[in-house]
């Protein structure tokens, strides 16, 4: 339970914390697209350095950001293993010629191309998690929900209840820590009555959670009812004509930051596809060793 970093803001004051949440959300989307397109380790390095710079600027301890990886470390390792084992690159001869080794066992094999591909996937997963983790560490959930609502605003034209989504999201995010706390309290109360949550097989453990889950649901429903009453008694009617207490405004720095990340995306795309045939883009793909099929046959 303690590993849940999502929705846990690290409360210090920094330029990253102060940035407009909408800008942060857009940057996060651009960043994710960028990471997905990155073809080479060198470009991953550039992205990682950019991320590191932002982390340092945010004054969140880098270890705290890294701890966001705990949840997906298993996924990343399993992905790596399978990518390596199932990738036979350009075939045995070509691999042997380029990298000098090719280990086969049954349907699996380990080869240079596979290792590189696995490494890239690892980099991709790690960077994909770290970016959003940093955003959640520097943005309050409520700000985030506002930003999402703003981003989805065009859908209002198609009669999508965007405001309702935003409200649902802010309330849900707001309640996550409360429910965790409540769950902790319930567990303590039942532990004090001799309940045991860490013994027995999986069915027993799941069964042991019933005395926690039932009161948790009861209180969640009660809370929801109370909140609805409180909102209605303050004349909330679904957002028509609702004004904001905190009006969001883009600052120059927000715009500059967005432009920077857009430029980074553009740069990565140019390096990857090389639309105009520029020679210098290959510098950033030096580590992309491609076995040449056929060369080893001659040798």
């Amino acid at each position: 339970m303690k590993d849940v970093v999502f929705g846990q803001i690290y409360p210090v004051d920094s330029p990253v914390h102060r940035a407009d949440p909408r800008a942060k959300l857009l940057i996060m989307i651009i960043y994710i697209v960028t990471v997905v397109f990155v073809p080479s380790f060198m470009l991953y390095g550039i992205i990682a350095l950019t991320l590191l710079a932002v982390i340092l600027m945010s004054r969140v301890p880098p270890l705290k950001v890294l701890s966001g990886l705990k949840a997906i470390i298993v996924l990343a390792i399993v992905t790596f293993i399978f990518t390596v084992l199932l990738n036979d690159g350009a075939g045995k001869e070509a691999e042997l010629a380029t990298f000098g080794f090719f280990v086969e066992f049954g349907p699996f094999c380990i080869c240079g191309s596979g290792l590189l591909a696995g490494g890239r996937i690892m980099c991709r997963i790690v960077l994909l998690i770290l970016g959003p983790t940093l955003i959640t560490l520097t943005t309050t959930p409520v700000d985030m929900a506002d930003a999402v609502e703003w981003l989805l605003a065009p859908l209002k034209l198609f009669r999508v209840p965007v405001h309702a989504f935003g409200m649902i999201m802010s309330i849900a995010l707001r309640m996550i820590p409360t429910l965790f706390e409540e769950a902790g309290r319930m567990m303590n109360a039942q532990k004090a009555r001799g309940a045991c949550f860490d013994h027995g097989n999986i069915f027993k453990r799941a069964g042991a959670l019933i005395p926690v889950l039932i009161p948790l649901f009861v209180s969640a429903f009660k809370r929801a009812g109370d909140l609805a009453d409180a909102m209605e008694s303050r004349c909330y009617n679904g957002g028509k004509g609702k004004t904001r207490m905190k009006v969001l405004r883009f600052s120059v720095w927000d715009v500059l930051a967005m432009l920077f990340f857009a430029a980074l995306l553009f740069f990565v795309l140019v390096c990857t596809y090389n639309w105009w045939g520029w020679g210098w883009t290959d510098i950033f793909k030096l580590d992309m060793i491609e076995p040449v099929v056929g060369r080893s046959v001659l040798g």
Binding site: R185, A189, A192, G194, V212, P215, S219
Partner: peptide
């Protein structure tokens, strides 16, 4: 826990 009984704040919330 057999020897020490604990009644929490709002203990009625733990009924299940």
């Amino acid at each position: 826990r057999e020897k020490v009984g604990m009644v929490f704040q709002y203990p009625e919330y733990q009924l299940f």
